[in-house]
Amino acid sequence: MAPKLTMVEAINLALRQEMERDDQVVLLGEDIGVNEGVFRVTAGLHKTFGAERVIDTPLAESGIVGTAIGMALAGLRPVAEIQFAGFVFLGFGQLEGHAARYRSRTLGQWTVPLVLRMPYGAGVRAHEHHSESREATLAGVPGLKVVIPSGPRSARALLAAAIRDPDPVIFMEPTQLYRAFREEVPEEPELGVIGRAHVERTGSDLTLVSWGAMMLPSRRAADALARDQGVQVELIDVQSVAPLDAATILESVSRTGRCVIVQEAARSFSLASEIVARINDQVLLQLEAPVQRVTGYDVVTPFFQRERLYMPNEARIIAAVGQALAD
């Protein structure tokens, strides 16, 4: 039987195996070396691979992203860490202006195969700027891939795929899931597919779409709906925010005719909005009811005493499903 790992351990496994496979893979970030990362994601790696491959950088996010771009242009495979996703905007200029468009502006002659890892999201009682969900902001930049795992096994497989991907990949790690549960993760390498959603549970009554930490209440809601109401929900884990696997979602919605989208992020200009738009483009006439969105609100992410009040939960999801079924 494969060992049961937390998401932190699974990410660590992917990093270790990719570094063993390819000596051009280097890690850089704040406190990732001697201290092994503030969440201990890089545990043991500095010891195994040394300071040259597990680089403690000065405290500067633009510097981290910008030098990672240079490393990638020179043929290394940098995996950079932003300590918390709330700080990525100090490096956003480098991401938008350079990482995302080097391939495009040079018609493929110069590419930036880097991975930018970052813990994100609320639910762990962290302070201001440590709990945002800005996946749509990043996914809105042409040329960036954005990937979000929802468990240890998908985290390991998707991170390995991201490191081997020829393009810049933003790898967003839901902090709430870091140690939320364990899952069997096989020792032999597994590669996820970026650009593919995962149908986690099949059902014919309604399509429930979510990703990241919101898969937790979505799973619980799907269980409760089946148990208490006999409602069979098809649960889709988006996994790849960009490119978005719309085909899998649309195929499901065209069968069920009903859809609820659950996201932690603020409601407007969001991935949920984008999925509704795609449904509207292609399967509107197969809908039996308006698509429901269960989301955060268009407010700054609250400090942690209030964060639970603002995050979608099982009850809100069940209510939205009820609404979609009643319409």
Binding site: I69, G70, A74, H98
Partner: peptide, 30 residues
């Protein structure tokens, strides 16, 4: 922007100062 032989000369870039970080990353790789 297509270079006859892409070697070790990066293309023109317009965002003032951003390329200096790329240079340091490349130097790290060297």
């Amino acid at each position: 922007n297509l270079q006859p032989q892409p070697g070790r000369t990066l293309p023109v870039t317009a965002i003032v100062g951003a390329q200096v970080l790329h240079a340091v990353g490349i130097a790290y790789a060297m």
